[in-house]
Structure formats: structure tokens, C-alpha cells
Amino acid sequence: MNPIAEYAIALLLLVGGFFTLVGAIGLARLPDFYTRLHGPTKATTVGVGAIVLSSVIYFSSKGQGVGVAEVLITVFLFLTAPVSANIMAKAAMHIGVPTTDSTRGNTWDQ
């Protein structure tokens, strides 16, 4: 296999794993629901995107063709992450999940 592709795959894998882990640490560590929402929507989406991209490079450098399923997975994750974050935030505000004391501003519910 071409060494540049090999470096790229290894780097993307490590970056992907790192961001996935950071998203999960954020989910476990941050103080309230609304701040926890930030970890998975950004870090985890990018992390999984990087891992899927490394899979695209891996299989195309092995001569198995460019994977369209991978591209669809990435596009789908990036399209759905904000929608699910938004709907979960709405549900949380409706139930009245409290914010941490350091939060300025108020939630609404209509």
C-alpha cells in the first residue's frame, strides 16, 4: 500500500478516536444537560466522520472501489446531528430540566 495513504489512514483513525473519546468525556463530565448536548453534537460527529473517511481511503487504496455507503453515512450523520440535538433540547425544556447555576438567561417553553 502507498505509504502516504497509510499515514493518512492512521492519522484519521487516531483523530477520529480522539474526538469520539472527547465527546464522551464531555457527556460524562459537563455539569448540566444543555452543556452535555455540545459534546456529542460536535465532537462525536466529527470523530465518527474522520473514522468513516479513513475507511473510505483504506478500501479505495486497496483497490476495492470508492465506498458510497461510507459517504452516505457521513452525510447522514452531519445532517441528523443538529436535528436530534434540537429536538432533545426542546424536550428537555418542556420537561423543565434545570440548568446549572452559572447559566445566564432563561429557557422558554411554549
Binding site: 483513525l13 452535555r36 456529542p40 465518527v48 432533545m88 424536550a91 420537561i95
Partner: peptide, 26 residues
Amino acid sequence: PDAPDRVLALDTLYINAIALIVLLGI
């Protein structure tokens, strides 16, 4: 501690499952 936290955890879990499946494929 609240239900939305659990939904969020499940949401993140399925995204991690996708990552694990892709890694298994590689």
C-alpha cells in the same frame, strides 16, 4: 439524572456503534 440525559446517552451510543462497526470492517 433526567430522561433527556439518557436519550442523549443512547444517541451518542448509536453513533459510537457506527464507529465500532466501521473499525471492525477495516
